[in-house]
Amino acid sequence: MEFLFAITVGVMVSAAVYLMLSNNLLRFIFGLVLISNAANLTIFVSGRLTDGAPPLIPEGADAPLVDVANALPQALVLTAIVIGFGLFAFAIVLVFRAWTTLNSLTPDDMRLAEPEEAQK
């Protein structure tokens, strides 16, 4: 079943890349959310999938009694989700700020840092 979700990751990445290339910061944000999720899913799938056995140790036992899901990728994904959220939060504020300051959401029109006349 990893195969199935590997394909899912691929579709998400494709959609995300296309959105990020769209020259619109809102669509870029959409793409960013998608591609972050795809990356998290990649880690999760890389750690292999186990259906219905959370990595918890039951009371009275010293170790899980059955083959439980791989805990390490879960911890990594959790960290990655949180970090991804931090980055995303900054990015959305930046987009908002770009709109209020530069009055544009099309990054190709933002030419203050690299003005066109300077390059002629």
């Binding site: 990020m20 910061l25 870029f28 960013l32 591609i35 972050s36 795809a38 990356a39 998290n40 990649t42 880690i43 999760f44 799938v45 890389s46 750690g47 390490l72 990728p73 990594l76 990655a80 980055l87 900054f90 990015a91 930046l94 987009v95 700020r97 770009a98 300051t101 530069l102 990054p107 933002m110 030419r111 203050l112 840092a113 690299e114």
Partner: peptide
């Protein structure tokens, strides 16, 4: 802000590539 948009956008792509790479290598 303008420079920041470009800086943030491209570095985020790199970051996500890195994360994906770690997942795959793991």
């Amino acid at each position: 802000i303008d420079g920041g948009v470009k800086y943030v956008a491209l570095n985020l792509v790199s970051t996500i590539m890195f994360l994906t790479g770690i997942g795959l290598l793991y």
